Amino acid sequence: MTLHPAAPDPASSQPSNAGSHTASVPMLAIRNIQVVYGGAIEAVRDVSLEVPSGRIVALLGSNGAGKSTVLKAVSAVLDAEDGKIEKGSILLQGRPIEQASAHGIVGLGLVQVPEGRRLFATLTVEENLVVGAHLQDRRNLAEARDYVFGLFPRLVDKRHQIAGYLSGGEQQMVAIGRALMSRPRLLALDEPSLGLAPLVVSEIFEAIQTLRDRSGLTILLVEQNASRALAIADYAYIMENGRVVLDGTPEALGRNADVREFYLGLSTQQGRTSMRDVKHYKRRKRWLS
């Protein structure tokens, strides 16, 4: 059974080439946003990016680069941490949402899976899924639940187990499944591989790719694991110190010497150490810390 997200406007439902940034309206467009915490700490400065319909766009960077802050701004959950969008705009299918409430944004079809999963630990797997379908009628709830169990078959036998007793990977599957229960147009994932074993990470990323390839779901993927993210993304942005410092297709970024060395762990040269090597070492220490 196929999960059908809330129907987008016909003109914007056709996937565009993520790398070309065509004139068609993207599913999500962030324009020069600045985010400040506590009225004093600038966490994000002049960040712009686009997420075309039906594509996976990766937002990469080390811990503290500002990636999660961008997601929180998009999902309208900055208030909980005394954060505020000081300037710029966020458009969902051309509609400004930077002043919308978190509940209103979910209603428009943008749903976030937060870092750390944040399940209702005392509820069962199925109860957690049902919580995510609070905007759906009974028929759509059943269809979405069947889709989630098809995407993550291992959850079928655990549907009546308490979520807090699941493994980290299984909890991540439930968190993604709960978000899918609302039939989103755009799924925002914050560090889905964090703390998971490599085999489980592979399973999670295969599911993310399936959501795009089979259901046409639009996905904004925030990740520190650059190699995994670039393997499935259509386009990527790299953040450092609250700013986007590089963007391009995975192929183009994979040919970039700095990206290969500092994000993919591929040494670009062997031999004697130069001052350039020392600077690169310091950058690596900062980017990978």
Rank of each mutant, 00 (worst) to 15 (best):
K67Q: 03
T22R: 09
L220S: 09
R243P: 05
R154F: 02
V278G: 01
M173W: 14
P96M: 13
Y235K: 07
I162M: 11
L91F: 11
S62D: 05
R45H: 12
V131C: 15
V74K: 01
V70I: 15
L91V: 07
Y147A: 09
H280R: 13
D258S: 11
E81W: 06
D190T: 11
D79T: 07
D46G: 09
V74Q: 09
Q112C: 07
D79F: 08
A6W: 06
P198C: 03
S75M: 06
D79W: 03
E191A: 07
R159I: 14
A231Y: 06
P8T: 05
A226L: 06
V125I: 12
L91I: 02
R214S: 12
S13P: 04
Y165F: 15
K279E: 00
G83A: 00
S53P: 03
L3K: 04
D79P: 01
H160D: 15
A40C: 07
G54E: 10
R154W: 00
E127A: 01
N32S: 14
E261W: 08
V200I: 14
G19F: 05
E86N: 13
R178M: 04
P5N: 03
G132Q: 04
K158M: 06
L194Y: 11
A233F: 07
L155W: 07
V148I: 08
M181P: 05
P15M: 05
F152A: 02
G39V: 02
R212W: 02
P250T: 07
A6M: 13
L189T: 06
P10Y: 04
V36Y: 10
K84N: 03
Q14C: 05
E223M: 05
E223P: 03
P153L: 09
V174E: 06
Q93N: 14
I105C: 01
D82S: 08
V130D: 11
L71F: 13
V156H: 03
R95V: 15
G254Y: 00
A29K: 15
H103V: 15
T273L: 12
N140A: 15
P26V: 13
L141P: 08
V77C: 09
K282T: 02
N256H: 13
A102C: 13
G132C: 11
A23H: 13
K285W: 01
S182H: 12
G88M: 06
I30Q: 01
R95M: 13
T69G: 02
G254T: 08
S16N: 03
E170I: 02
H160K: 15
D213I: 01
A133S: 15
L135W: 06
L28A: 08
I238T: 01
D79K: 10
A65V: 01
Q99K: 14
H134V: 13
V278C: 00
S48G: 12
G88S: 11
Y165E: 09
K158Y: 03
I204T: 07
A144E: 00
A252W: 10
R45G: 04
K282Y: 00
S20N: 11
V36H: 04
V36M: 08
M275F: 07
A236M: 11
K285G: 03
N32E: 14
V47M: 07
H4F: 10
M1I: 13
S48K: 10
E143V: 15
R95C: 11
M181A: 08
L119Q: 03
V25M: 14
R45C: 12
